[in-house]
Amino acid sequence: MAAGGDHGSPDSYRSPLASRYASPEMCFVFSDRYKFRTWRQLWLWLAEAEQTLGLPITDEQIQEMKSNLENIDFKMAAEEEKRLRHDVMAHVHTFGHCCPKAAGIIHLGATSCYVGDNTDLIILRNALDLLLPKLARVISRLADFAKERASLPTLGFTHFQPAQLTTVGKRCCLWIQDLCMDLQNLKRVRDDLRFRGVKGTTGTQASFLQLFEGDDHKVEQLDKMVTEKAGFKRAFIITGQTYTRKVDIEVLSVLASLGASVHKICTDIRLLANLKEMEEPFEKQQIGSSAMPYKRNPMRSERCCSLARHLMTLVMDPLQTASVQWFERTLDDSANRRICLAEAFLTADTILNTLQNISEGLVVYPKVIERRIRQELPFMATENIIMAMVKAGGSRQDCHEKIRVLSQQAASVVKQEGGDNDLIERIQVDAYFSPIHSQLDHLLDPSSFTGRASQQVQRFLEEEVYPLLKPYESVMKVKAELCL
């Protein structure tokens, strides 16, 4: 049975990233139509530049190519590739079939990587351009969430054990800070992308030097003109047959890092959902379990974690691919890159769409948070109580021993009897502590235990987050809708 299948058929496997999760716009960027249309555009740009620099290419040939950029006979191309065992030459023939007058000058002087690699770089750039505003929107939604809850005390956790208090907004800023680093890295790697350009079979530009009869300047002009037509500021000066596969490492490393950030955020949300302090959106008709109707599973956060793990592992592909590119190139890269580049971007696209949807509907339960604080705060307040007693004339050592005994009794009630923490009640009825009984409410005010959390939130948002989001103001209103 021949390899390949009808990918629109229910009898043929289709990647869930495309069929179930990723956005239509990201799927289109990695589609065959987008790819092969870009090949034709690159052939047109090459012909236009070659004509401008004096090669015998007519206006009629150029116009014929322009008129057929979208006229792609995919069936013919597939048949040609089956016959020739070469995808680029299959599309040269297919393009030439609908451009008979231009057929002889299509791909003039070029090698397969002229269309293959340059198209990949265009796709990487455009895919990054799709991700950047999506990530900015996630940051914006979380920034709104953090600002609104900047002063809401909550129990902090280290080692997932109760620690000092923080605020809900401050905790959210930990998430935002990681995503801001990801946004900066995505922008950097996007701006650092260079075009492969017009380089020939081993990167020496020998074929173009021959076409222009040894004119170095025209060869350099050709490279520059096509690079500018493709919208790049610069091209690699040095290439082998391909652009260095280190570029793929750079791009997928940034995406993998984004995956790590999203995994951490969504894990926190899942843990908070278990504590009943916070939940992701839950639709009115949504079913959490087929057997347990009360369940409210954090399905979206779980999906993000599941896909983020996949995204983090994909960076190993370009690392290994770059390491086995012998001399000017081997074909070890080809099949692998067809999979890992598309999957990385479709996965990143999915987790950003999902995280935006989550961040637009996060639900906080202040009463649950308050109750958990009441359970733990008495123990945390013991040092403040000791200091207040010393100020009232008591002995630190005597007070410490009193607190120690009462704390152990209260802990026994919590752990052995399943009761509430009654340390404060014990202190309130103990005559030894009568000098500070009137101060206990103040000493137990949760806001006095959150330090500068709310001020940190305000400063972080104003100095770091809002300036970073400013270039994306025009796209901030787009909502994230999930079908599944």
Rank of each mutant, 00 (worst) to 15 (best):
D420P: 07
A3T: 13
C172R: 02
P318K: 04
S301E: 02
E280Y: 07
T202C: 11
A322S: 08
G4L: 15
P100T: 12
A136V: 15
L311G: 02
R245S: 03
L174K: 04
Q375H: 07
E481N: 15
L484Q: 15
L423V: 04
R329N: 05
Y243K: 06
D441E: 13
E60S: 13
A127K: 07
T350M: 09
L179Y: 05
I436W: 04
L314A: 12
V457H: 06
T52A: 13
Y21G: 11
F236Q: 05
Q63S: 13
K284V: 12
A291Y: 00
I424N: 07
P153T: 05
D144V: 15
I123V: 14
H86R: 00
P133M: 13
G8D: 15
A136M: 15
T267L: 11
L152C: 13
T167R: 02
R196S: 11
T350N: 15
K224M: 10
H310L: 08
A431V: 10
S447T: 13
E60F: 08
E383N: 01
H437D: 04
P56H: 12
Y466A: 15
M299L: 03
H437Y: 08
K264L: 06
T350C: 11
R125Y: 02
R141H: 15
N357V: 08
R188C: 06
R329M: 01
L69W: 12
S407I: 03
A150H: 13
S454W: 09
A47N: 04
H263A: 10
G393E: 05
A22C: 15
Q41R: 13
V475Q: 13
R40T: 02
A480D: 13
Q161T: 05
L258C: 09
E425D: 12
T52P: 04
S261L: 03
K224D: 14
P153A: 08
D87N: 01
A273D: 10
V219G: 03
E81L: 01
T350F: 03
M387R: 01
L42G: 02
I72D: 09
Q241R: 00
E383R: 03
G451W: 00
G8Q: 14
A291V: 02
T119M: 02
P162D: 02
A392V: 13
T119C: 14
H107D: 00
L17E: 00
S438Y: 09
I269K: 07
I403A: 04
R20T: 01
R303D: 05
Q375E: 10
E81T: 03
V405P: 01
A47M: 02
R171D: 02
E148G: 10
S412C: 11
V368T: 11
T313R: 04
D117T: 00
I424D: 06
D420R: 05
T330A: 13
A260G: 10
A344M: 07
V475A: 14
V138C: 08
L252E: 03
C180G: 11
Y13L: 13
F195S: 03
Q285R: 12
K367S: 10
N118C: 10
A230W: 01
G259P: 03
L155P: 02
V413S: 11
I122D: 00
I237Q: 07
K134R: 07
E473C: 12
D87I: 03
V465E: 00
I424A: 15
V115R: 01
A344E: 06
L307P: 02
R371V: 04
L128F: 09
I351H: 03
F345K: 03
R329I: 06
A78P: 08
R194N: 06
R374S: 10
M476A: 15
P281N: 11
E401C: 06
R137V: 15
N384R: 05
A291T: 03
I436K: 04
A392Q: 13
A49K: 03
Y21S: 00
K264F: 08
G5P: 08
K276I: 04
E81K: 01
G169L: 00
L183E: 08
L314D: 05
N336Q: 06
L135H: 08
R194Y: 06
V315F: 12
V324K: 04
V390C: 10
S67E: 13
E148Q: 12
D268G: 08
L165V: 09
E250P: 07
C304S: 10
E228W: 15
K470I: 07
D11G: 08
M380F: 06
L142Y: 12
W39T: 08
A235L: 11
L131H: 10
D420S: 05
L193Y: 05
W45V: 06
Q184G: 11
A260W: 02
D120Q: 00
L193F: 13
G96L: 09
L444P: 04
T52F: 08
V363T: 05
I339G: 07
A18S: 15
R459E: 10
Y243M: 08
M225N: 08
R194Q: 10
E383V: 02
A256K: 02
L271K: 01
G361D: 15
L53Y: 03
L362Q: 02
R37M: 14
T158M: 00
P467A: 10
G104W: 07
K477C: 15
D11P: 14
A235R: 08
E279G: 06
S207H: 00
A2F: 15
V29S: 05
M387Q: 15
L130C: 12
T119N: 06
D317T: 08
C113V: 11
R171Y: 02
R337M: 03
P162C: 07
P162R: 03
K477F: 11
E328D: 06
L53C: 15
K391G: 14
I122T: 06
V457A: 06
R372L: 03
L165S: 01
W43Q: 06
T58A: 12
T244C: 13
I265W: 10
A150W: 05
V247Q: 13
V262D: 05
G451V: 03
N336C: 10
P446L: 05
L443N: 02
Y34E: 04
D6C: 07
E328Y: 01
Q356P: 04
P366A: 06
Q164Y: 02
D192N: 11
P10Y: 15
L469A: 08
L406F: 08
T347I: 10
